[in-house]
Design a protein around this nucleic acid. Structure first.
Length: 502
RNA sequence: UCCUCGGUAGCUCAGCGGUAGAGCAUGCGGCUGUUAACCGCAGGGUCGUAGGUUCAAAUCCUACCCGGGGAGCCA
C-alpha cells in the first residue's frame, strides 16, 4: 500500500482515488452501529470521513467514537468522488488519531442569538457561514489590489494617528499623545492627496475609525477603507474608475467564490447585472425620482405585498398549530423550526410596515438642499437594477475640500455609489478643490483649525492640479456581495458601540 | 439622545395569573450509509435585578440593568 499524501480538503480534487492524510477538526458527527460519519473541517473546506469499525483498528475506532465536536484529529484514507456530500468528496478512513478531545463546545449545530454568537466570535469564525463570508472578504481585498496594481496605482499608507479632523461632522476617537491631543484617522484622504501629487495615482488600504454612536446594521466603529486618489482625474473619470473597480470586485467574486456564495444562498442575478453600466444620476434627478408618483406607488405596492405575505404566513402558522396535536414527533420538530422562521419573518414584516409610511412621508416632504437619509437612498435605488452613481450634491452638507461645479455654484462635484437591493452607500468621493483662496475660506467657514491645514494648503501652492478620489467601505461592499443582513459578520472581530471583546 | 422589541435550562424558544415546558447540546442505551440523521431513557432552572399589586406572579404594575433593531450621522 502506498503512503498517504498530506493535503487539504480544498485540494482533494487532485487526489481522487488516492490515499491522503488530513489534519483538522470535527465539525459534526452522525453515527449508527459500527459506523461513524465524521464531518471534518480543516480551514480549506468540509469533508465527510467515514469510519467503519470493520475497516479500522481499535485505536482508530475508539478515537472516532470518543471525538466530540471541534476535537482535533489527524486521519488517513482513500478519496472518493461523491456529489451528494459537502465539497463533493468523501474519505473512507483507514487510520485516525485524536490530537485533542474538545470540551463541550458552546456553538451547537442549532441556531443561536446574535449576542451569544458575538460573545463567542473567536469560535464562531469556525462556522461554515463565517468561513464563506470571510473568504469573500479575502477575494474582495485581492480584487482591489489587482485592479489598482494593474492600472499603475501605487499602494501607500496614510497615518492612523492624526492631528486633524478631515470632516468636521464625524466624531473622532481622541487620545492623549505625549501631552497633547491626537485622533484615530477617520479618512486618509488629505494625506492621499499629498501622495497623489508625488506618485500620480495612489490608493490607501487601511483601518478607519468613527466614534459615531450608531447602532445600526451598517456601522462599525473600526472599519477598513480603500481610498484611491488620482492627479489629473476629474469627476467623470473618478466615477468611471469607481464603476470599473466595483465591476472587477463583482466579477472576481462570481468567478472565484462560487462555493462561498452558494453557502450564503446569494442570488447571483443582481450581481451579474452589477458588473458594468452603472447609471449616473444627478442629485437633482435623484430628488425628482424620490418625490415621484412612481416612488409612492412602489411603496404602496410593497406594503400590499407585505400584507399578503404576512397573511399567508399567519394562516400557515395557524394551520400548523391546529394540526400540531396529531403530528408525529419529527413533524413537530419540523414545524417548530418553521414556526421560528415564520415568527422572525413576521417581525420583519411588522417592522417594514411600521417604517414604510414614514419613509414615504420623508420622501414626499424632501426638499432640494437636504441630504439623503438612509431610507431616501433605499427608495431611490429601488428604481434601478444595479449600482447607481449619484453626483453633484448641494455643497452645504458636503466636505470643505470638494470642488464647486463651475456650471452651478450651488453644487459640489461629489459622488456616491449606492448599491442595489437596499444596501446603499458603499463609495463616497469626488473632485477636490484646487484653488488655495477658496480652500482657505472653506476651512474658516467650517470652523476648522487653520494651522492644522498649512501642509495641506501647500499642495495648492506648488503645482495645484485637477484631482479626484473616493473611499470604498470594505465591509459594506462585502455585505452587499454576500447579500447579508448585517455588516458585523464581514470583519473577523467587529468593533461596535458597546463591543470590544473578544 | 430619542423611538421600538426583547431578557425563562449550556443554546434557541414556548408558556403570559393557579405545582416550570419542548427541541438542540451533554450522559447512557439502540440502529451497518447517515446528511442540522433517527429512536428510547436520564441529569439540568432563585423565569435579568429590586420593589409593588394579589389568597396566588415567569405571567400584571413601577424603577433600574443588559442586549437587538431603527432614527440622527456616515463608508
Amino acid at each position: 500500500m502506498s503512503t498517504p499524501v498530506y493535503t487539504t480538503i480544498y485540494h482533494l480534487k487532485d487526489h481522487e482515488g488516492g490515499l491522503v492524510t488530513l489534519k483538522g477538526w470535527l465539525y459534526n458527527k452522525r453515527s449508527s452501529k459500527g459506523l461513524h460519519f465524521l464531518v471534518v473541517r480543516d480551514g480549506s473546506g468540509l469533508c465527510q470521513c467515514v469510519v467503519s469499525q470493520e475497516l479500522v483498528d481499535e485505536a482508530a475506532w475508539n478515537g472516532a467514537d470518543e471525538a466530540t465536536q471541534e476535537s482535533s484529529m489527524e486521519l488517513s484514507g482513500s478519496v472518493r468522488k461523491d456529489e451528494k456530500q459537502v465539497g463533493g468528496y468523501e474519505i473512507q478512513v483507514n487510520s485516525l488519531r485524536l490530537i485533542h478531545k474538545a470540551e463541550e463546545y458552546p456553538i451547537t449545530p442549532k441556531e443561536h442569538g446574535v449576542d451569544f454568537l458575538m460573545n463567542h466570535r473567536h469560535l464562531w469564525l469556525r462556522s461554515q457561514r463565517q468561513w464563506a463570508i470571510l473568504r469573500v472578504r479575502n477575494s474582495v481585498i485581492m480584487s482591489i489590489h489587482h485592479f489598482y496594481q494593474e492600472r499603475g496605482f501605487v499602494q501607500m499608507d496614510a497615518p492612523i494617528l492624526t492631528g486633524t479632523a478631515v470632516e468636521g461632522t464625524s466624531t473622532l476617537f481622541e487620545m492623549e499623545y505625549f501631552g497633547r491631543s491626537a485622533y484615530l484617522t477617520q479618512s486618509g484622504q488629505l494625506h492621499g492627496e499629498a501622495m497623489a501629487m508625488a506618485f500620480g495615482k495612489i490608493y490607501t488600504f487601511g483601518p478607519t475609525f468613527r466614534a459615531e454612536k450608531s447602532k445600526t446594521r451598517r456601522h462599525l466603529t473600526e472599519f477598513w477603507m480603500i481610498e484611491p486618489e488620482m492627479a489629473f482625474y476629474d469627476l467623470d473619470m473618478a466615477m468611471q474608475l469607481a464603476e470599473d473597480m466595483l465591476g472587477r470586485i463583482v466579477s472576481d467574486a462570481l468567478k472565484n467564490c462560487q462555493a462561498e456564495l452558494e453557502i450564503l444562498e446569494r442570488d447571483l442575478e443582481p450581481l451579474k447585472r452589477s458588473i458594468s453600466g452603472y447609471p449616473r444620476v444627478s442629485y437633482d434627478d435623484a430628488v425628482d425620482i424620490l418625490k415621484s408618483d412612481k416612488t409612492a406607488q412602489m411603496v404602496k405596492d410593497k406594503l400590499a405585498g407585505l400584507d399578503l405575505e404576512g397573511a399567508s404566513l399567519s394562516s400557515e402558522l395557524a394551520k400548523g398549530k391546529s394540526e400540531y396535536g396529531q403530528a408525529k414527533k419529527w413533524e413537530k420538530k419540523k414545524f417548530d423550526s418553521r414556526e421560528l422562521e415564520i415568527n422572525r419573518r413576521l417581525a420583519e414584516i411588522e417592522e417594514d410596515r411600521r417604517n414604510l409610511p414614514a419613509w414615504l412621508a420623508s420622501a414626499t416632504a424632501f426638499e432640494w438642499g437636504n441630504d439623503f437619509g438612509g431610507s431616501d437612498e433605499t427608495l431611490i435605488t429601488w428604481h434601478f437594477d444595479r449600482p447607481i452613481i449619484v453626483h453633484r450634491f448641494p455643497h452645504e452638507f458636503k466636505a470643505f475640500y470638494m470642488k464647486r461645479d463651475p456650471e452651478d455654484d450651488r453644487v459640489a462635484l461629489g459622488m456616491d455609489v449606492l448599491a442595489p437591493e437596499g444596501y446603499g452607500e458603499i463609495v463616497g468621493g469626488g473632485e477636490r478643490a484646487t484653488d488655495l483662496a477658496f480652500l482657505e475660506a472653506q476651512v474658516k467657514k467650517h470652523g476648522l483649525p487653520e494651522e492644522a491645514f498649512t501642509w495641506y494648503f501647500d499642495l495648492r501652492r506648488y503645482g495645484s492640479v485637477t484631482h479626484s478620489g473616493f473611499g470604498l467601505g470594505l465591509e459594506r461592499t462585502v455585505t452587499w456581495i454576500c447579500g447579508l443582513h448585517h455588516l458585523r459578520e464581514t470583519i473577523p472581530f467587529a468593533r461596535t458601540l458597546d463591543r470590544l471583546y473578544p
